[in-house]
Simulated assay, not measured.
Amino acid sequence: MKSFILSLALLAIVYPGFGQTYKTKDFVKIPQGVEITKTITVKNCDEVIKAGSVITREIKKKNGKEEVTIVKVDTLKIDTKLGFDKAVPLKLSSLPGKANISASEKDGSTLLINYYLNPEHTLDSGTNIRIVYYKIDCDGKPFIEKQEARQRRLSQDTSVLLCKISNKQDTAADWFKYSDVVIEVYKNDMIDYYLINKYDRNGSYSMQLDNREYISYTKRSMEFGAITIPLKYRFGYTRDIDGNAVKVNNEFIADANLGLFAGYKLGRYRVRNDGGKLKDLSDLGATIGVFASLSSTSIDSLSTAGSGTPLKTGEKISIGVFSPGLGIMLSIYNVQIGGFIGYDFGFGANGGKWNFHKRPWLGFGVAYSLASFWKS
């Protein structure tokens, strides 16, 4: 009991951080029914400039290698319409999908959403299609820019980065209406399905959180890095050697070891609008993965008794130990708990004599706040 309490004390004092972690950017699953704003840039939108306004225009000209900038300043005598690029917001009642999310630096209540691109879809040679191209006007209304008059047959396999829509009900969705291209794919002279630009790489997506509103979405990422496992429990066993039962006792240790861990993290993306400022809420998640670590241990006649060829009395040797295994680490608010299962393999001929060579073990660790398995 005293050794167990001492081991926990060592865990809290000696292991203030279990390793340095690196992870891929979290991808978050945006659920159905979340209102999203898609913003696109529409060119040449009229804006009335009041009389008396001063307009400055720059004209660049080249004279051989020399570039000359001509600045022209005009004062408008009457109200004048001029065309400018305009950011047009389009409201989408729902746009589920995988995305990376970040907070806007300009608006503390806005989350910027970077959706994963449309998947690749291959149309086989001989498929009949018709393409319709759409644009958005300055008021945010879609209109047909151009369209093919009739079906045409593909002469070769063709791949496109567009989403396949086979459910006719989806054609009424906002994201369908605002797609800049729609490919109608035919079968027996009837539309079989559509291919559309559901996740537009030229559009900017965002969502707004009201004051005190919070969201909690599923997120995923890959993690990898260095790790140590502070506590290990090795299972005892009994072995028959030349008709004699040799018992190897359980072993509970707290030792230093260094390894590499790679895992898949499942968690929740949780954020709240706290008075106009987005606040990340405490982390909830689990990381499941594999690890491999290296350590050393000393063996003697007692710790090799289960091999059948133990070391001589008084003889003591240090061996290297390789330990692969599986692990799971839970993050609950500021507490991190890890459980591991692995096997020990002693190096060399003497390593094979070790009582726990090719034997399983359980590992455990718990930490609070700064004393975590990972150090970001």
Results as ranks from 00 to 15, higher is better:
221 S>H: 08
72 K>R: 15
302 L>E: 13
148 E>R: 07
233 Y>N: 02
28 V>A: 03
359 R>S: 06
268 R>L: 09
214 Y>N: 14
284 L>E: 06
154 L>T: 10
338 G>H: 08
315 E>S: 10
143 F>P: 01
290 V>N: 10
370 L>M: 08
114 N>I: 07
296 S>I: 12
116 Y>S: 11
86 K>E: 03
92 L>G: 08
250 N>W: 13
319 I>S: 04
361 W>G: 00
172 A>N: 13
183 I>T: 12
316 K>C: 03
191 I>P: 06
180 D>N: 06
255 D>P: 00
228 T>L: 01
227 I>V: 13
301 S>M: 03
301 S>Q: 12
330 L>A: 13
197 N>Q: 13
256 A>P: 08
217 Y>I: 08
20 Q>H: 07
44 N>V: 01
159 S>P: 09
91 K>I: 14
27 F>W: 14
52 G>W: 06
152 R>N: 11
65 K>H: 03
204 S>V: 06
127 T>K: 08
18 F>Y: 03
225 G>C: 11
1 M>T: 13
171 T>M: 15
316 K>I: 14
47 E>P: 00
33 G>A: 05
64 G>W: 11
227 I>F: 09
202 N>I: 01
162 L>S: 03
217 Y>M: 10
332 I>M: 08
318 S>D: 15
284 L>A: 08
202 N>K: 12
324 P>S: 12
203 G>L: 05
66 E>A: 13
222 M>A: 13
88 V>H: 03
249 N>E: 14
44 N>I: 02
333 Y>R: 12
